[in-house]
Design a protein around this nucleic acid. Structure first.
Lengths: 218, 218, 218, 218
DNA sequence: TATGAATGAGAGTTCATTCAT
DNA sequence: GATGAATGAACTCTCATTCAT
């Protein structure tokens, strides 16, 4: 998994910038991209709207950078979790777990809203679209690498790892939507089980739905 | 699959209303839900903004009804296509085809944008959320019914039809996103093949990716 | 008390007109002159706004005629009450009573609101100002006539009847405002007593505040 | 008579606010409360309507504060005039004079329009009603205090000072209406004489209508 | 760096008024 | 006489953006 230079750039010299970006992400998650106002972000930081403009010149620029920042955070998080897990099937389960199950620390319920908004904005804003595409490519590559490792280690049956990555990431996206929208037909646990059953079948590894699904990090 | 009366409802009594709803859908697809202005819709119909208010009282109501209208159109379309197909596997393939492959008549590229926007709005607007949930339940029920029919006819292996519906609809949603966003890694054809391969494996029916995928209705 | 020709004109051939005028008065009393919309009046009558326009051509005209209509009603009412009372002091008391004390039949609380609105509109609208002036002149003349009759009959001391009319009508107007606005310092009974004490002193007739003030017509 | 701190409050810290409030009062007096538009006020000050919103957040708040401001001005004015007069009867006359006779400096003709509008708005807006009631209570208390002082000094006959305050303030209100509406039957001079005659009779002090009524401050 | 003051460009909504039927 | 459809002209309020300090 190649760490983007973007990630480095964000962990940057200027703490004010980062502070504003973090605030922007919170507001976007709460009110939605389209309803996010500069004044909201400024208020959250406790500064004047003019200062936000001073740092980011324009609202569009602020939001674009905020999204890129979110990406970086997500990856930093994911990488840390994955590095500690020895087996490929374990890592795969972790990926699915992170995607499907709520985490008390950083509520992914908010994250999901953010991703959906991301797709929505990407439809019309080329700048956002580029970020989104890069993000998804990265995500699929992560899955592909885990699959590849597992096949090399004999944990998974041989099959096109790219194909698995496309299918699994699409499935997870689809399930995330239902979770984010609190569809009564798709609870977090059910989504997790569905995705794991799908993956275990596809890759031919054993997996049993746990009695009581453990939340990750708990 | 129960044929909805939705199709009939669409051929409504008031042509002006329908005209405005159609225009609203076009504008939403082009500019996005959040960026859709009453004036845009009015201009497209060639009337004054006040007339749009006259018919729908408020912008929110207009947009809500527009979405409902889109749903009706989608189902009227789908129902018509499916009724003509005798085998369950054929109907299942048609469902996947409709979802993944562009149709020259009613550009689903527009539809996809609309659905993504729908999810996005549903995050925060309860009224939209209700429409979305109903729509998705209907869609899963459609899949479930086809699976059930196929199992009864011996075309498909026995397994929880609900589970298949949840998984397949999620997979299709996820693939749709990539298509809508024109992700270079997921062409329409690839999405179609991925979904069909998934379905055939799950339900144990034979399916071969065609040399040259035929567009439906072409 | 001379009956105006306006009164005759209002008890007119066209019942629709009268119906609309009555509705207009109700709406003005409830929502205020400035907030009265044609649509409100139309709705109350159960017809379309266009019909109201058909009858009155313009909103201003409707409201002006409505006010004139209110005047007519008020006088018809007042005249009827006064004719039955033999003594001048009795008639004077009736005038004060009508002005100050609520009547269950036609809530004067509404009437008062109407008069205050009338003054307010008269400030800026010449047409309304003319109606208002005529109305007040009539009202003062009514008082003057009662005073004159009482002096001729020896009930009242001789003094400038015009002057009394000006002073008493002003006092009643002022008290009405407090009543209309539900000022806790000026109850209806207190206003009544204040006005009567003033009149009896001025005109030198005996008057005792009743233990329990009787409502008129009760 | 307790000197209010209102006068001080008027010389506020923010000159822009005061400037806008003054402009608002002018516009209200000219066009009426209901017809006062933010744009009018802004134009009078020579700024953009958005700036008015910036200072007062909403139109209702602007108008409410404007009325409160008018009150302050009125009292600051009245207090200043009254403090210089030694006798109670002189002060009473001054009160009546201020109410009835035009002043070239601050045209009370405008003030009257404002008060009438105030009553009108108070009918339906609780916020305005509260301001109005407070204002009237203050006004009656002012009268009551003068009456009390005069009785203590032996200038006036003993009688219920509250009662006098209610009656006299009502009379003045009523006369003001006629003056504000330029009723030909009630000139400013006549109103003044009527009110003074009423007061002198009630309180038993000597008062002679002047040949040529002097305008105050002239 | 940080802000308060100021603005322009809309956006939705309201409503009297018109007109063909 | 009666209406539904249609419009134009406002009006309030929002918000990104600018600029002097």
């Amino acid at each position: 998994m190649s760490s983007t230079t973007a990630g480095a750039a964000t962990v940057e010299l200027d703490p004010r910038r980062t502070q504003i970006l973090r605030a922007a992400l919170e507001v976007i998650a709460e009110r939605g991209y389209g309803e996010t106002r500069i004044a909201d972000v400024a208020e959250r930081v406790g500064v004047s709207p003019a200062l936000v403009m001073y740092y980011f010149k324009t609202k569009d620029r602020l939001l674009a950078e905020a999204i890129r920042h979110a990406e970086d955070l997500w990856y930093a998080d994911g990488t840390r979790v994955m590095e500690a897990i020895p087996t490929a099937s374990g890592r795969l389960e972790a990926l699915v777990r992170i995607t499907c199950l709520s985490d008390e620390e950083v509520g992914p319920s908010d994250s999901w809203a953010l991703w959906i908004d991301l797709w929505c904005q990407a439809l019309r804003r080329p700048a956002v679209a580029a970020v989104r595409e890069e993000f998804d490519a990265h995500w699929r590559e992560t899955i592909r690498a885990v699959v590849h490792d597992g096949q090399a280690a004999g944990e998974f049956e041989p099959m096109d790892a790219d194909e698995v990555a496309v299918a699994l990431s699409a499935l997870l996206d689809g399930l995330s939507i239902q979770i984010a929208l609190h569809d009564p037909a798709v609870t977090e646990e059910r989504a997790f089980a569905t995705a794991m059953r799908f993956a275990s079948r596809l890759l031919g590894f054993a997996w049993e739905p746990p009695e009581q699904v453990r939340r990750h990090r708990a």
